[in-house]
């Protein structure tokens, strides 16, 4: 198979684009796709400080790599979940990645924020592990961005992640989740940082190929708690459809965003206020993260984590069409 651009030996076929690329031309294609997405969806500009949430996996490190090479002002945020060897290895990969590129890496441990690492949190909450983990990560991302002065958080969600989330929400007809699904989660409150997904048009195979071909040392092993996750089943189903009909994943997602999402965007009135405990946004008196931390503390006897001074306890009434409180979004 030959590269459609230069005629050299192809290393990757992209059936959905009816094309194939050599290593150099694929790397160029990948970078241009990311940067075009950032530009077209107005995710951020070169004036913004972007906090890139990195897990040590292929997607987030590929994203950070592209943004660093393109000269964006970025720092990495590694959230240490405390999941045994998996977290030790992923943290080491992120630290090496940052050190090799002279980039800043901020590390926050879930155990410090919530009172216990994810394996212990899993035992004390009725939430599925991935739900408690996701809640903690979204909370820490937002809080770390505010604490360190970043205006944008970028995550490595790819086409497969987003299409699987969309499939899951559609199967449940979860209109609230459907309304929220977007690659740009706007900051609708002073305590919310805008969250963007620059890889949402690139498949997992493409991000893995980029990482491999560009020599990024990433963690191939999956989180031990992800085995059997529903999101993986949804991805498998979508990949079967993709095999039979190349391009169907992208069509499913992109057409949803362009054509169907506006139909789900109800402009609902939400009382968005600051959590009386930590000052982060919530729709209630106490945010979901603080409730989780309370559960952990009761079960483990861990000391209460230091509360932030609430800055302005008055509730903010606003029209929120696509984002509820960051700490209470249960889907990516």
């Amino acid at each position: 198979m030959k590269c459609k651009k230069c005629g050299g030996r192809a290393v990757l076929e992209l059936r959905r684009h009816n094309t194939a690329f050599c290593a150099d031309d694929f790397l160029g294609f990948f970078r241009s796709q990311v940067l075009e997405t950032v530009r077209r969806w107005k995710m951020f500009t070169r004036e913004d400080s972007v906090l890139v949430a990195v897990s040590g996996g292929k997607d987030s490190l590929a994203l950070w790599d592209v943004l660093l090479e393109a000269g964006f002002r970025t720092a990495g945020l590694y959230i240490d979940l405390g999941i045994f060897d998996y977290s030790r290895e992923s943290k080491a990969r992120c630290q090496s990645f940052a050190a090799e590129r002279g980039a800043r890496l901020i590390v926050v441990a879930v155990a410090d924020a919530v009172g216990a690492a994810i394996p212990a949190v899993k035992d004390v909450t009725r939430r599925p592990t991935c739900s408690a983990c996701g809640l903690s990560k979204r909370y820490i991302m937002n809080r770390a961005a505010l604490d360190h002065g970043f205006g944008v958080v970028a995550t490595g969600h790819n086409l497969d992640d987003e299409a699987a989330t969309l499939l899951g929400s559609t199967l449940r007809w979860d209109d609230s989740a459907l309304a929220r699904q977007t690659p740009v989660l706007e900051a609708t409150h002073p305590k919310l940082v805008r969250r963007v997904k620059p890889l949402f048009r690139l498949s997992e195979r493409e991000t893995a190929a980029y990482a491999f071909l560009h020599g990024i040392d990433y963690v191939v092993e999956e989180c031990p708690f992800a085995r059997g996750a529903t999101s993986i089943t949804h991805k498998e189903i979508l990949n079967r459809l993709e095999d039979a009909s190349p391009g169907v994943k992208a069509t499913f997602l992109v057409n949803y965003l362009e054509r169907a999402r506006p139909l789900f965007q109800t402009r609902e009135q939400v009382d968005l206020r600051e959590c009386g405990r930590c000052g982060q946004t919530t729709t209630g008196e106490v945010c979901a993260f603080c409730k989780l931390a309370d559960q952990v503390r009761r079960a483990t006897g861990a000391p209460a984590r230091p509360a932030l001074e609430p800055t302005d306890p008055a509730p903010l009434r606003g029209l929120i069409s696509d984002l509820h409180a960051a700490s209470e979004i249960h889907s990516a």
Partner: peptide, 10 residues
């Protein structure tokens, strides 16, 4: 054969 599927909470 290196799998590319990530799962769980993203």
């Amino acid at each position: 054969l290196r799998p590319v599927i990530s799962g769980g909470c993203r």
